[in-house]
């Protein structure tokens, strides 16, 4: 059985980072995120990135895990770099890219060392005031959790559809991928709604 985690998913461990309180980690992420969003010094961003990578090593998580997650961002980073270079300057593009990498790495460090249920527990507490406007925090937390759970499932379904298309000689067709994937996703949503009802959520 593979032990590779899905995008940003918790990796069990007993490092100090794993044991640090969820509220503290989320608070630091928020504060760090705000600071990173406002800095214009690329050296500061490089130091933040290096620190995050050191934290990953400190949490005894293989470096390839966050790097693989960053790789999925590569096309977006490239587009932003080119767009900024064209409209402004290469330096501005580089600054934006470094900022995104720093933010994603920081979020990755938190999600890899914190159980989803613990983060959702904190989110539920944060959302409590929303009850007064008719929002049920527990439902919001459940919806987020299911969205996280659905990411690998949809990726799996997309892979199945792609393989089925290839076996029938269709190498690259967005419509041939998207239409069956949409149908499968809607079927999956239907089944999950039924399962939630069966498990006592009305």
């Amino acid at each position: 059985m593979s032990t590779a985690p899905a995008l940003g998913m918790y990796l069990p461990g007993d490092s100090m980072l794993h044991r640090t309180g969820t509220r503290r980690k989320m608070g630091l992420l928020l504060a760090g995120g705000i600071a990173v969003s406002f800095t214009r010094d690329p050296w500061v961003l490089l130091v933040v990135i290096a620190t995050q990578l050191a934290l990953v090593a400190f949490a005894r998580i293989p470096l390839r895990v966050p790097l693989r997650q960053l790789r999925t961002l590569a096309p977006l980073l490239m587009i932003l770099l080119i767009a900024h270079a064209w409209l402004d300057s290469w330096e501005a593009g580089l600054l934006v890219d470094l900022r995104i990498v720093a933010l994603v790495l920081a979020a990755t460090v938190v999600t890899l060392t914190t159980r989803t249920s613990e983060m959702l527990g904190e989110l539920e507490i944060l959302l409590r005031p929303a009850r007064y406007v008719g929002v049920d925090p527990a439902r919001v937390a459940l919806a987020i959790s299911m969205a996280i759970r659905f990411v690998p499932r949809i990726a799996q379904k997309a892979q199945q559809v792609r393989e089925a298309q290839r076996s029938r000689g269709v190498e690259k067709s967005l419509a041939a991928l998207l239409v069956p994937l949409l149908i499968k996703t809607l079927q999956m949503a239907d089944q999950t709604a039924e399962a939630l009802e069966a498990r006592g959520l009305d």
Binding site: M9, R115, S145, R149, R153, E194, G200
Partner: peptide, 25 residues
């Protein structure tokens, strides 16, 4: 609702039934 509390249901495809990212959750 009361009936569903008394009657547990297991589906053909476990993936349809598992709603949280990790086993214990």
């Amino acid at each position: 609702k009361q009936v569903r509390r008394q009657v547990g249901f297991v589906f053909q495809d476990p993936d349809a039934q598992i709603v949280f990212p990790t086993v214990a959750e």
